[in-house]
């Protein structure tokens, strides 16, 4: 079943990949332990503290991996082992503090401390999982997704 889904997803991804736009850096990796990678434009590279992240990046941790990031709106995300987290959408205006932040936890664990985006507008920060969507009202919480 897994392979079956993957085939479909890959076909869909190939269609969607045509419109990728380079966007500004939205946050920074602060700490890394064990195996941690950033997947960007289909290229997976080891992550290290100080690396900048962009919208559409996927964070991947191995069996012993963990990673912590801070975003330009002061949101903080951290992931535990065997995680796959996509930074799906990020938009932030530092002057008005308006923005949008959508993260998808595809598997693993994610701890979230929301920042200015969620503070400014209650529906602006969301965390998706394969089965649900979480609306963030300015808060600290954690999500686990099991495949």
């Amino acid at each position: 079943m897994n392979r079956c889904f993957r085939t479909i997803l890959l076909s869909l991804a190939a269609i969607a990949a045509s419109a990728t736009v380079a966007l500004a850096d939205i946050g920074q990796i602060k700490n890394v332990s064990g195996a941690v990678f950033i997947l960007r434009d289909k290229i997976q590279q080891p992550a290290k503290p100080g690396d900048l992240v962009q919208q559409s990046d996927v964070l991947i941790t191995g069996a012993n991996g963990a990673v912590g990031l801070t975003f330009i709106d002061s949101s903080r995300l951290s992931a535990g082992p065997n995680s796959r987290i996509e930074l799906k959408q990020f938009r932030f205006n530092p002057t008005t503090q308006d923005g949008e932040f959508v993260t998808e936890v595809q598997r693993g664990t994610l701890a979230v401390v929301s920042g200015q985006i969620a503070k400014r507008s209650p529906d602006a920060m969301k965390v998706k999982t394969p089965t649900t969507i979480l609306g963030v009202r300015g808060t600290t919480f954690a999500v686990q997704v099991e495949e």
């Binding site: 936890v105 701890a111 401390v113 999982t129 394969p130 089965t131 649900t132 969507i133 979480l134 609306g135 963030v136 009202r137 300015g138 808060t139 600290t140 919480f141 954690a142 999500v143 686990q144 997704v145 099991e146």
Partner: peptide, 26 residues
């Protein structure tokens, strides 16, 4: 069960919330 969510104590003690799901079932 696929997703598990837990609200954690707030650093500043402010009242906060997470809404799980959308619509009537939320």
């Amino acid at each position: 069960v696929n997703t598990y969510v837990v609200l954690l104590p707030e650093e500043g003690g402010a009242s906060t919330a997470v809404i799980v799901g959308e619509g009537a079932q939320a």
